[in-house]
Design a protein around this nucleic acid. Sequence first.
DNA 1: CTGAAAATACCACGAATGTGCGATTGCCTT
DNA 2: AAGGCAATCGCACATTCGTGGTATTTTCAG
Lengths: 224, 224
Amino acid sequence: MKPIDLLAQGQVNIWMVEDNSRYRKSLEAVVNSADGMVCRESFSTCEEALVRMEEAPLPDVILLDIGLPGISGIKGIQRFKSFSMDIHIVILTIYEDNDVVFDALCEGASGYLLKDSSPEKIVDSIREVLQGGAPLNMRIAHKVLQLFSRIKGRRPDYGLTDREKEILQYVVSGMTKQQIADTLFLSFHTVNTHIKNIYKKLEVNTKAAVVSKAYRENLFNPDV
Amino acid sequence: MKPIDLLAQGQVNIWMVEDNSRYRKSLEAVVNSADGMVCRESFSTCEEALVRMEEAPLPDVILLDIGLPGISGIKGIQRFKSFSMDIHIVILTIYEDNDVVFDALCEGASGYLLKDSSPEKIVDSIREVLQGGAPLNMRIAHKVLQLFSRIKGRRPDYGLTDREKEILQYVVSGMTKQQIADTLFLSFHTVNTHIKNIYKKLEVNTKAAVVSKAYRENLFNPDV
DNA sequence: CTGAAAATACCACGAATGTGCGATTGCCTT
DNA sequence: AAGGCAATCGCACATTCGTGGTATTTTCAG
């Protein structure tokens, strides 16, 4: 391990949590041979790392495996981040299951690499994270974008008119019929009629159900 | 333009939609000088490209600007994809506004680059897309991950009790107070009281507003 | 020009909701 | 033992909603 003064010189403090000791050691070597970074601590479980975090200087980046004994990497992300939101977590795992990826990213991982990544790629990724980037494995990035297209994906068309869509927004915002009428300078009765028609088209019969349906099916802005 | 037989040899057909003619031409040159790809058509508006798509062989990849006159790039994505879902769209723009990025990705863009990208990066990105990847500019990737962490992110704690959370679920599902009471074998009054308390804690006063708030702030399963 | 669709407006009435107030029971902590 | 909190149940009343109608005016494509 390199002397402390290197840290003062801007050496980036990398930690590693990886239960495969052979892989961990080879990765340590890779990181330590890279300019400007040093693997100061490495662990085989999240628990050990969390204990160490109580006293040691906090890492800048943690390379984190997911399939760990004890606390999983996913849970680990939250715990690590609770020490400081400035700690960047880069997932390094074999899992490319949709749910795992999704959960990890939701918990605040800054990057997601697969273990088939080359040492150079891993080092580059650490640099990218430190520059505010988010290194993603090619296949992972593709999965991420797929999740997006699913969000705004197939919106069933209920044939709402423009006015109905507009009023739907207000209903969703939680306004009362009278409030909507006042806002749009309409009669209460008009708003009432529009909402009646929306109910028929969406096949619901309460405001709560409309709001729920609107959110679940992304019945928003452009074309409902 | 290179002869047709190159296409048969596996030349990748790249199209370009970019209204700045100088930038477009320099980009064309970059693509054409790259191995295995050729910029077969280029346009300054989506409309022109869409017309051409009716007869010309479909492109493999379209490099698409967002800030175009007429049909915006965002709308263009849908149109292009309607010809074939196999057409990959790579956004190449100056916009890194959250909404624009989000919309583009939701419409099915396969990649998102900024115009400050180097020619090499752009060519690499095209290759990446063809291999099933999703090239994202560093900052864009970061934004994308931020969107994720917002999804499961900070859930404000309104101090709802377990029973209240349970009843909240039913309210969100669109059930009436009496229905909830029947489902949980409770008195109507009890459900009424719980809902009253939920209203106070969430600072709302209608079911629609509760449902809306629950969706917006992810007030769901684990810990509200 | 003409007909259809959309937007507007009104009425009436039962059902459901929102709200203020009070009360009992059980559990947990101090 | 005492206090606090959660969960339960109750009543009353004004407000809002949901639903059945009908009807006029705008708008817009054929």
